[in-house]
Design a binder for these strands. Structure first.
Lengths: 159, 159
DNA sequence: GTGTTTATCTTGAAGATTCAAGTGTTGAAG
DNA sequence: CTTCAACACTTGAATCTTCAAGATAAACAC
């Protein structure tokens, strides 16, 4: 291993701030959603993505990609949501090796009920105090970091 | 509940990009550290914070704050690291209700061994492709978001 | 065609995190 | 100097996530 270039002061400051956000944002979102709607942020993402999809339906692998999750994680959570009656799985008529996840009416009602408070929470946790310019900067930075992660070859999804 | 202000296109784009980073960065860091050093990113943070502290020692509550963790989470993880011989807990002579966590020599060796690759990983996952200007923007944005989370009153640490 | 690899998904066990409750300790109120 | 509340943890059970393995199904090699 070659000698690493250590982070300089500015990089370290940015890194610590980012880690703080990464470790605190998830729990904060979970906390609000569990309290007000009985679902985790990841549960919410699953049903929200389905609610925006054509026919409220997505292939499992597509849903995993859109929710930034491993197929394994998604499979377990969809099973849970299925027992709750919010999602239903059916074989894909187009291909026998893919499975479709479909949002039920109850699932749709759950998203509709949870969305307003969740959006307010996102607004107050993330966008409060940020200028319009900073919103654009955030998009550019986060998009670049996401690309870096994807190109790194480190596991971020599959298991 | 008042009618929420939905996110506009720019906000939604920033939000999706940020969620992608939040959900993928942790697993990517864990992946590299587990492969190369046998510890999770959170394990690493614990020993790294201790390694930078005076006498390699911190009170549990202080360590929890610095690692963005609940006391409960920290307590479980320190117990694990203790069985591995990297950390040791001792009563605080200054106050009978606080506990000190101390990094052992083995723990120090583990940090020193893991740090170079970890820093390279952080560099390639986060800073690669970001301009100097963007590093400063990231600090400002992440710091503001962290403040928002702390002021929200939603649980992000304790359990 | 047959065998091999790749893709999609599921499962169960192991490990990690949270949640709720419990143990002492300290400080504050009266 | 009691009582009561707040603080600093710890613990065990429930839940969530990952990891490794396995089940089909399609694609590919020959």
């Amino acid at each position: 291993m070659t000698t690493p270039r250590w982070l300089d002061d500015e990089e370290r400051e940015a890194w610590l701030a980012l880690v703080g956000v990464v470790l605190r944002l998830g729990p904060a979102l979970d906390s609000q959603l569990l309290r007000d709607a009985g679902l985790t942020h990841f549960d919410y993402q699953v049903v929200a993505m389905l609610s925006m999809a054509e026919d409220h339906t997505l292939r499992m692998s597509e849903l995993a990609a859109q929710t930034n999750a491993s197929l394994s994680r998604l499979s377990h959570v969809v099973k849970k949501l299925e027992t709750r009656g919010w999602v239903r799985r059916t074989p894909d008529p187009a291909s026998r090796r893919t499975t479709l996840a479909v949002l039920t009416d109850d699932g749709w009602q759950a998203v509709v009920a949870a969305a307003p408070q969740h959006v307010e929470t996102v607004r107050s946790l993330v966008f409060e105090g940020l200028s319009r310019e900073q919103v654009g900067q955030l998009t550019a930075i986060a998009t670049q970091v996401r690309r870096n992660i994807e190109e790194s070859g480190l596991r971020t999804l599959d298991g």
